[in-house]
């Protein structure tokens, strides 16, 4: 069994043990679905869908570092260094596995809930809207997770990464408003970024930032832990 699979499986197990935090995160990001359904605001499904995505993304951006903090405090503890990293040829697998797990669990579960909502209520709506939303969730949560990892290494406390992310989010909503660089957008732009091909292509550049951040994070963690 490779180091990567060992680290990924343990990270999943560790994250799934944070049941209260996971439940709170999922409840917050899916509560609106229940509210929308109970308020019977489904006449214009596409508008409702974009509104839902907009609020979900803002909540997810703030929840990601909190959840990441549950599996990575920002500092290598003595027991981690002397009894876990001790056996790893590639110590960065320990850190990257935690980031990947948070990304996949958080984005994956929201996608599952949203897809359920889509299947139940979308009726005639264009399925490209669903696909666009799934892509936005994956890219945005991945970007926020990679940024949380970066800030956690920089600030040596994962929870502190909430502050720069909040500032970045506010700047994104009011100033940046560009799919390549913004954490998220104002409601008007949400629909364009989810449906227009050129905006989707620009937003996909986020994948490059995610990869670059992961590489930087991995090198930084390795430098801090290899003895």
């Amino acid at each position: 069994m490779s180091e990567w699979t060992t680290q990924l499986s343990f990270s999943f197990r560790h994250l799934l043990k944070q049941r209260g935090m996971l439940a709170a995160a999922l409840l917050l990001s899916t509560l609106q679905i229940a509210l929308l359904v109970s308020a019977n605001r489904l006449d214009n499904f596409a508008d409702t869908w974009f509104g839902l995505l907009h609020v979900q993304m803002i909540l997810l951006i703030l929840l990601t570092p909190i959840l990441f903090n549950a599996v990575w405090s920002g500092r290598v503890q003595v027991f981690e260094s002397k009894t876990i990293l001790y056996y790893l040829r590639r110590t960065e697998s320990y850190f990257l596995a935690r980031m990947l797990t948070v990304w996949l669990v958080l984005a994956g579960s929201v996608i599952v809930f949203d897809t359920g909502f889509w299947l139940l209520y979308a009726r005639e709506a264009d399925s490209a809207i669903w696909a666009g939303a799934v892509l936005q969730i994956l890219l945005t949560v991945g970007y926020v997770t990679a940024l949380s990892g970066f800030f956690s290494l920089m600030l040596r406390r994962t929870i502190y990464s909430l502050l720069p992310l909040l500032i970045y989010l506010l700047a994104s909503l009011s100033l940046i408003e560009h799919p390549m660089f913004a954490l998220w957008f104002s409601p008007n732009l949400t629909e364009q970024v989810t449906t227009q091909p050129e905006q989707i292509a620009a937003r996909s550049v986020l994948m490059i930032w995610i990869l670059l951040l992961m590489i930087v994070n991995a090198a930084w963690f390795r430098r801090r832990t290899v003895r």
Partner: peptide
């Protein structure tokens, strides 16, 4: 390293595991 077992001072682990 695989032939060494090491118990460091104040051994700790993740509380929920």
């Amino acid at each position: 390293r695989r032939r060494i077992g090491y118990l460091p001072q104040k051994f700790d682990f993740f509380a929920k595991i």
